[in-house]
Amino acid sequence: MFRNQYDSDTTVWSPQGRLFQVEYAMEAVKQGSATVGLKSRDYAALIALCRTSKEAEDSPNSPLQRKIMPVDAHMGMSIAGLTADARIVCQHLRSECMSFRHSYDTDYPVQRLVTNLGIKLQATTQRYNRRPFGVGMLIAGYDEKGTHIFQVMPSANVFNCKAMAIGSRSQSARTYLERHLDSFMDSTKQDLICHGIQAIRGALGNQDSSEFTINVAIVGKDEPFKIFNETENQIYFEIAKTMGNPVTSDAEDARSIGGMIDMMDDMLEHGPSGSGSGPALDTDEESNAGLEPRPQ
């Protein structure tokens, strides 16, 4: 009722002990397009929904506003929330990675970089002359410790995850990830991507899928961070729809998926992709559909 008396800056607490500016930033994440991150032992994948603008519909050559951003050869991030804020954060991460590589001639450890990012975001919740970044991020990376999926929120909470979805209608995606969590262990790279696409399809709800474009990125062992092009995105989307067809028998499903993968390899002019396996989410107390991770 008296919220407007306590939301002028981030250092003013309400009588209930709330920081409304931080809550506004969290709300911006909830209103953003959904994005999913999941990993196996050798690969980490990011899948994001990108809203199709009217300009892109009128002109097919008009670029879309990407929701997946490369950070370094071994790392990238997908976003939900304010894209302008995400560009500032991404530029900071790129600068840190370049400085670390110049000093030590190696990749910046993913966990250390994300921890330092959380410290930077925390400062914006404590100073009256700054506002919290209104963007949530899923950061995927691969280093000497293996694959990583980190969730970073405007409140400066950093979570180490094995599968997570953020953004609008992301609860449906988290439910799918929980239901198929055990199958990620033996998933190939193609299966891992298809599981992510299947999860994010649930975030569409009753909305027209033609208004959205799916962006996919992968990073892993012996494979630098790569954002797929439109052709690859469409091929994987068709494969995922085949996997989700309940009337198709297992044999027909396997033949259809195998044929699509062969067609994809011919179109992209590379051999079959490797396989990977990995666990599910690091958490002791399961909440939020069993996928709420433990703060680091």
Rank of each mutant, 00 (worst) to 15 (best):
S277P: 12
I200M: 06
Q65P: 06
P154R: 05
L113V: 00
E292P: 01
E292G: 10
A56H: 15
F133S: 08
I257L: 07
V114M: 10
G205I: 09
R131P: 00
M164Q: 12
G134T: 13
F225D: 04
M26H: 01
I193R: 02
A156N: 13
F2P: 00
G259W: 05
S40Q: 00
D284W: 07
I200N: 07
P272H: 14
Q65A: 11
G196R: 06
G220H: 07
S187D: 14
I200R: 11
P272L: 12
L93H: 02
A44P: 00
Q151K: 15
S40F: 06
R169G: 02
S187I: 02
F100A: 00
D284Y: 12
D143L: 00
A140Y: 08
D282H: 15
E223A: 12
S95R: 09
N157C: 07
G278A: 02
L204M: 12
G258Y: 00
M263W: 10
M243S: 08
R87K: 09
L38W: 04
G205E: 10
A254T: 10
C90Q: 13
M260T: 04
L64T: 10
D262E: 13
E252W: 00
N233K: 04
Q198K: 11
Q91W: 01
R3I: 15
E96D: 13
D107M: 08
T248K: 13
I47S: 08
F2G: 04
G17Q: 10
S210G: 11
R255Q: 14
E211I: 03
F237S: 13
D186V: 13
S249A: 05
D266C: 06
I47T: 08
C161P: 09
S249R: 05
D262W: 11
P70Q: 14
G76E: 09
F237H: 06
D253K: 15
G220I: 02
A165E: 11
M69E: 10
G205D: 05
T248F: 10
T231H: 14
T248S: 15
M263H: 15
P224Y: 08
D284G: 13
E144Y: 03
A44L: 02
D143P: 01
Q234W: 06
A173R: 04
E232L: 09
N288A: 09
E285I: 13
S8M: 02
N229T: 08
Q111T: 02
N4L: 07
D250Q: 11
